[in-house]
């Protein structure tokens, strides 16, 4: 466990603290190499690539766009609802979201 946390501290984009999950989706769904995935996400967010891991910027962006925030905000989108927003923003299909939408008749 400590090993995984050490890698996160040393090299990780930061997951939902910043834009790590968004960049990961692009690697998974479009086979994008890291620089291409970062550039794609930054363009969709309208920010510089350098700010993808900047908590100061990403915190507010995630909150405003409904992408899910790392601290729990009552009434704020999380889980499948946040993933719906993420899929829309990135123009990708997230399989769990597709199933949810089908169940909801969306």
């Amino acid at each position: 466990m400590g090993m995984a946390i050490a890698h996160i501290m040393a090299s990780c984009m930061g997951g939902i603290r910043t834009a790590g999950d968004l960049v990961a989706w692009m690697q998974m769904t479009r086979k994008m190499k890291i620089n291409d995935a970062k550039a794609y996400v930054a363009k969709k967010l309208g920010i510089d690539v350098f700010d993808l891991t900047n908590e100061e910027i990403m915190r507010e962006l995630r909150k405003d766009l409904g992408l899910g925030t790392v601290t729990s905000i009552a009434g704020g989108p999380k889980g499948i609802r946040a993933k719906m927003k993420i899929a829309e923003l990135l123009d990708i299909k997230i399989r769990s979201v597709e199933l949810f939408k089908a169940q909801m008749g969306l």
């Binding site: 995984a4 050490a6 040393a10 090299s11 984009m13 930061g14 790590g20 990961a24 690697q27 350098f50």
Partner: peptide, 18 residues
């Protein structure tokens, strides 16, 4: 004691059952 990548050079850390 520990080191890290430079700001802006972070990458995706996936996992295998962490």
């Amino acid at each position: 004691r520990i080191v890290s990548v430079n700001p802006g050079e972070e990458v995706i850390v996936s996992d295998d059952g962490t």
